[in-house]
Design a protein around this nucleic acid. Structure first.
Lengths: 174, 174
DNA sequence: AGTGAAAAACTTCCACT
DNA sequence: AGTGGAAGTTTTTCACT
């Protein structure tokens, strides 16, 4: 037998995710507030079994959280911008820190290409854009786009239709 | 009295969102699975009162859903791309439709600027990028970036700290 | 708009398979 | 890994403020 060291620590165990897990994930991506009982009914499993699986999915880093989606325009942030940044040499860490410290910025990613960073920010008014851009200006060149309508609103990963049973159905109680 | 027609239909009523609502929203953005009972404890309100407010927030379009966040890399989508598109004249609707029909695309927005559309897609392999780009090629010029680490992972809107009481606390039971 | 109390539903724990 | 049953919570409804 080959000398197998214990598996290196990693964020999530490489345990197989089966069709049942995928169906549970598909359901929870659409409605995170589904009860374990209801989930169990949908995937044909008892509530404790669903609870077990969900716990495992959480512990292995597959599910990273449960979040209410709030429409920014309804809570005073009618303006959304996407800003790309072409950083001056060696200034990327400073830019990342600035982004982190700016509460209006709700996500920020490193990307490949000339502009190697971009963020999304929600603003109370277009006028609030300038001061934000000004803070970044010393460290890079910014390109700003106003975000209009969502052509495809955020939607779940294509995990396969949540309707293919992995085991035969149990007989229905009527 | 001026002739007031019934209020035009809109996605959400312009009812005031007070500090209590903001605190509830702040909590639910962080953990959508909090129980009404626990929320009530945190904002110092009874469970039925919290349920009422949440229902109103849902009905008025402030809360648009509750979603489990799934780490794409743990479910077989290790590659994330951001694609900007500069559409050929009059082809934007076709591009939007293509985006809608491509399950790997999890969001797509219209933006200002030369490239007036962008989308985010999660892929099972870089090789899957080409066929997708090829579908868009006839209708516009695409610019693709690979998305690396999240500098700022998606986080809640800055709705104000969820710890400022709007009413005096009730006496604690001990 | 919010409360407390009762009924229904849900989550959790556990012994068993 | 999953089940069914018991115990503890939570959600929901409702009369009252």
């Amino acid at each position: 037998m080959p000398n197998r060291r214990p598996r290196p620590e990693r964020a999530y165990e490489p345990k197989e995710i089966d069709g049942l897990d995928r169906r549970i994930l598909a359901e929870l991506q659409v409605d995170a507030r589904l009860s374990l009982a209801e989930l169990g009914r949908r995937v044909n499993l008892s509530a404790p079994a669903v609870a077990d699986r969900i716990q495992r999915l959480e512990e292995t880093g597959v599910i990273t959280g449960y979040h209410a989606a709030v429409d920014p325009s309804t809570v005073g942030f009618p303006v959304t911008v996407l800003v790309r940044i072409n950083p001056a040499v060696r200034e990327l860490p400073r830019i990342a820190k600035l982004a982190e410290e700016t509460p209006e910025i709700v996500e920020c990613y490193r990307i490949t290409g000339d502009d190697c960073l971009y963020f999304i920010a929600h603003l109370r008014a277009v006028e609030h854009l300038e001061p934000i851009l000004d803070r970044f200006a010393p460290y890079g060149r910014t390109t700003t786009s106003l975000v209009h309508a969502a052509t495809v609103p955020r939607r779940p990963l294509p995990l396969g239709a949540p309707d293919r049973p992995d085991r035969p159905d149990r007989p229905e109680a009527e």
